[in-house]
Structures are given as structure tokens and as C-alpha cells.
Amino acid sequence: MTELIYPQMPEHSLVVLIGPSGAGKSTIARTWPASQVLSLDAHARLLRERADEIDQLADHAPQPIGQRLRANANRLRGTADTHDATAQPAEALT
């Protein structure tokens, strides 16, 4: 693998990796400590997992509470879908 060269960045800076699918954004991000990376893919996965947990709670809750729990689970899934919708194919970026 090619050696990665990082530019000097100020402390507390925000770095956004933008590029087409397969360009290596996730590969570069994996070289950084997990505490310094926010991945929309990982965040979307966590939102969907939490929505599934809430659905399971709703199965055992009284009807009005169950409906509210399901609505919240669906909102979480909607947010995860929004994360996924921000992904752009390479053709869209040229």
C-alpha cells in the first residue's frame, strides 16, 4: 500500500472526506483513531439497530405507547435513509 501523507492540521479541526464511491475515503478514515472519526455509514447502521430495538419494545407495550414507539423507530429509519441518500455515484460527481 502507498504510504499516506497527512498535511498539518490545526488542533480541533474538522476534515471532510468527499469523493466518489471506491475512492478510498473509508480506507483513509480507518487510519485515524475511532474517537476522531464520524462515519455516516456507521451512524446510519446504529440508527437502524436502535429502531429495531424500539420496534421490539413496541411489540410488548400497550397500544398507544406501542404506536408512539413505532413512530419513533420509523423516524430513526428515515434519518438513516437520509444519510444513505447523501451518497453520490461517481458519475454524479464528474
Rank of each mutant, 00 (worst) to 15 (best):
M1P: 09
T2H: 12
L4C: 03
L4K: 04
I5F: 12
I5A: 03
Y6F: 08
P7S: 00
P7M: 02
Q8S: 11
Q8L: 10
P10G: 13
E11H: 06
H12L: 06
H12S: 07
S13L: 05
S13K: 01
L14C: 05
V15I: 15
L17M: 09
L17Y: 04
L17D: 03
I18M: 04
I18S: 01
I18K: 04
P20E: 04
P20I: 10
S21M: 14
G22K: 08
A23H: 01
G24A: 07
K25T: 06
K25G: 01
S26M: 08
T27M: 09
T27I: 14
I28E: 03
I28R: 04
A29E: 05
A29V: 04
A29S: 15
A29R: 01
A29W: 10
R30S: 15
R30H: 15
T31E: 12
T31S: 09
W32P: 02
P33S: 13
P33F: 12
S35N: 12
S35C: 10
Q36C: 14
Q36G: 02
V37C: 07
V37G: 00
L38C: 09
L38E: 09
L38D: 07
S39Y: 02
L40A: 15
L40T: 15
L40Y: 10
L40P: 12
L40F: 14
D41S: 10
A42W: 05
A42C: 08
H43G: 03
H43V: 05
A44R: 02
A44I: 11
R45D: 13
R45F: 07
L46E: 15
L46T: 13
L46N: 10
L46H: 04
E49L: 14
E49R: 13
E49H: 09
A51R: 03
A51M: 06
D52W: 12
D52I: 11
D52V: 12
Q56N: 08
L57G: 06
L57T: 00
D59E: 15
D59K: 12
D59H: 13
H60G: 03
A61F: 09
A61S: 14
P64M: 02
P64D: 03
I65F: 01
G66R: 02
G66P: 09
Q67H: 10
Q67C: 06
Q67K: 06
R68I: 11
R68V: 10
L69K: 00
A71W: 12
A71K: 05
A71S: 10
N72E: 15
N72T: 14
A73Q: 05
A73S: 02
A73R: 00
A73L: 04
N74F: 11
R75T: 07
R75M: 12
R75A: 15
T79R: 00
T79H: 08
A80P: 02
D81G: 01
D81C: 06
D81K: 05
H83D: 14
H83A: 15
H83K: 05
D84W: 03
A85W: 07
A85K: 08
A85P: 00
T86I: 11
A87G: 07
A87V: 15
A87W: 12
Q88W: 03
Q88E: 07
Q88R: 05
Q88I: 14
Q88S: 08
P89E: 12
P89F: 09
A90K: 05
A90T: 14
A90Y: 03
A92M: 13
A92S: 15
T94V: 15
T94K: 07
